[in-house]
Design a protein around this nucleic acid. Sequence first.
DNA 1: ACCGGACCGGCAAGCGGTTGCCAAAAGTTT
DNA 2: AAACTTTTGGCAACCGCTTGCCGGTCCGGT
Lengths: 331, 331
Amino acid sequence: MAGNVTIYDVAQAAGVVASTVSRAFSTPGRVNARTRDRILTAADELGYQPNPHARALQSGKHHTVAMVVSDVTNPHYFELVRGAEMRAKAAQHTLVLANAEESPRIELEQIQRLMGSVDGFVLAASRLPDENLRHLAGQRPLVLMSRELPGLASVVLDHGQGCRQIVEHLASLGHRRLVYLAGPTNSWMAATRWAALDVAARALDVDAVRVGPFTPRVSQGGAAADAALHTGATAVIAHNDLLAIGVMQRLASRGVGVPDQISVVGFDDIFAADLCTPRLTTLGGAHAEVGRAAVELLLHAVGPVRQQQQPSPISLPTELVLRESTGQAVT
Amino acid sequence: MAGNVTIYDVAQAAGVVASTVSRAFSTPGRVNARTRDRILTAADELGYQPNPHARALQSGKHHTVAMVVSDVTNPHYFELVRGAEMRAKAAQHTLVLANAEESPRIELEQIQRLMGSVDGFVLAASRLPDENLRHLAGQRPLVLMSRELPGLASVVLDHGQGCRQIVEHLASLGHRRLVYLAGPTNSWMAATRWAALDVAARALDVDAVRVGPFTPRVSQGGAAADAALHTGATAVIAHNDLLAIGVMQRLASRGVGVPDQISVVGFDDIFAADLCTPRLTTLGGAHAEVGRAAVELLLHAVGPVRQQQQPSPISLPTELVLRESTGQAVT
DNA sequence: ACCGGACCGGCAAGCGGTTGCCAAAAGTTT
DNA sequence: AAACTTTTGGCAACCGCTTGCCGGTCCGGT
């Protein structure tokens, strides 16, 4: 029945004027306790719910944050979304979800569209060029996830650390030649992973090459596996678990044993990594925590003062989850 | 720099009054082509973006729909979310995501909170009692997913059909005694699945019992597996894939062979069902399609006329995906 | 030359709240 | 009892945009 009870209806019912009702809610001290009770009772009976947009129109605060992910299809992002949603909810904020479908153009469109409706953005693995991000950050508070850009707030898992662990793990198993199956060209994460792997490989005196780029989906695993085999590497490090799983499927169908003939490592530690065969060794981390931290950072930036202090990137630890897809190198 | 360019700024830049600018966008025919060009150019240069809330305040249309899922943690729902997001986007609508954390109280809270900000709700596997749903449906357009309620719009997979297929499949493998590991008590889906299984079992003259309820998570699989074994059934039908996977893990650790000693069937056909060992036989369907259809229905109800015609539940076909977790019954 | 009607831009009210300012009422002080 | 201070409620403007209504221009028709 209700649905559109306004402050005016309440005012009338309580025998006061609208502004008094407004104050009864927002500045309780400003209005007499008795009047206030009367108002609250009336509001309650009528089922009054303040209209957040009318309020936003005035204050500019929408109590809403947008999260745009580069690909909703990827289960990895679910964790991020989950963490973000929880944190937003804890702060009484609404989370709107937008999908960029791996396209910078769509990503920008989505952001533009939401620009007027949200207090800030959390961008997961944004595919946007740096200058776009900088420009956007000038318009609305912005936090990056799984991407860094000097001067912008961000939350990432520490891949320097993590990639080093991967290479050490493989090196200690006797692998001397690794191949990285790279993710999309415009993926900061792909570049970062490769850079970190390369550094670690040099330090440990093992060969590392990169092939790709590949769209990180299971379906791309076939092409990726074949390319990997062609390099003669004894261990392949896939851009993410999805690709790694696809690679393992292809290897299995080509009769190449994992980990007997070749080792496979993924990134993200998605749910399925623990279920596939062989179970996948992968670099994980507290992904929900990344989502949570990003929203937290954003809420902070959105906050009362909107402080413009230089945001320092938050870096969360990774953990290398050893399972069955890695083993001794073939000699 | 910009961010809050208003219609007034554009008006000033174009040398007209605000209402003309408004019309240039909303009623193009109303304004002279030349003036319009001037306005559009100015708007473009200033980077004007209409404020959707100011508009909503006037029209009552927010171009936003809310999707509340009973548990964001469950990968199954992500397919629904994905379908919903795509459909919403196609209609230039924003999708806000809310998590009910398997709690009717939280679900209701979330809905109340969003009531004033969205045009309608899509509820995935709502745990709310019927009367709540009816009441809500009176306030805002509402579409149910994976739940039916006479008089309300809904989109479900046809479980009568699907459960029949499951039972036929198992019966033809020689199973004479089945156990259903039930989902939460307030899950309509759980009740429906059991009812359908029961009917099918009677029709095919096989025994079917139900144990539970279990929260449908992998972690609950242990308890569920033990309970299932206790019934002496040769085939277990888990409330969903997550639970089924947990069950299989427990069975493996107890040394019970699947499918040699016992068969396992799940529901949902999540990504992991194809990757676990043994690969899981499960009742799937076009889940993204369910999300899409639900939003479509909702947009229709939100539409211009807001027609109040009796909404007929949409029922989409299921498909039984046979994999390796089901086999001949032990004799 | 005059009239009726398109066409088109402006005015102003309103959507639902918030908030600075004012003034009436009540309470204090001397 | 007069003067002063402190509540406390009301008035009105404003946030950004939409829209009904008005009236000025310009056109063709007679």
